[in-house]
Nucleic acid binder design. Sequence first.
DNA 1: CTAACGATTCGCT
DNA 2: GCGAATCGTTAGT
Length: 207
Amino acid sequence: MNANFTSMKLTRDFYTRPDVVTISRELLGKFLVTRIAGQLTSGMIVETEAYCGRNDKACHANNGRRTKRTEIMFEGGGKAYVYLCYGIHHLFNVTTNIDGLADAVLIRAIEPVDGVDLMLKRRNKPEVRPDLTSGPGALSQALEITTSHYGQDLLGDTVWIENRDCDLTEEQIIAGNRIGVDYAGEDAFKPWRFVIKDSPWMSKPRI
DNA sequence: CTAACGATTCGCT
DNA sequence: GCGAATCGTTAGT
């Protein structure tokens, strides 16, 4: 084998599978990477949330709600769904499932790995602490992901997710309710938030 | 065209 | 723990 064995970009097949909750769990321990203006930054994914396009009122695309913003979720798995939240924060999701089935996984926190100095600069932080990349808005700023990356193919060379063979055991994965989705009624209690147990890099509230 | 609001973060108490 | 910041999206007039 070659050196890429331990640093492999996830393939289309990973993203187009039908169960977004399973994909959400499996993204823990993978590495989210950006290459912006030639500068590489990355982190290990430690927290995710699944959003399903059918019967999930927390999902922007629930029950075929097709708008300019949600359109990318209907175009098949492995694309970046980035949107602006509260007019300030850019939230990064990866789309999953096949054409017409609008599922996505929100990346909520990463453990910084490559390009840490650049992340500190982008976040205007003096030193590495959990708040560098804990929270969906914070990690997007650290990796310089913005709405300009809306629709980017994660099989491309700007933003992608790769496997570095950091597989987790079942005991290391904890599930909880999703954050900030009170508007979704009973669907707010779907246990579709996943974190790596005891990770100091998970966002608040901690599980 | 208008208005309400959000898958959040940060600073201050 | 609480409230402000800040603007694109959305649905309704």
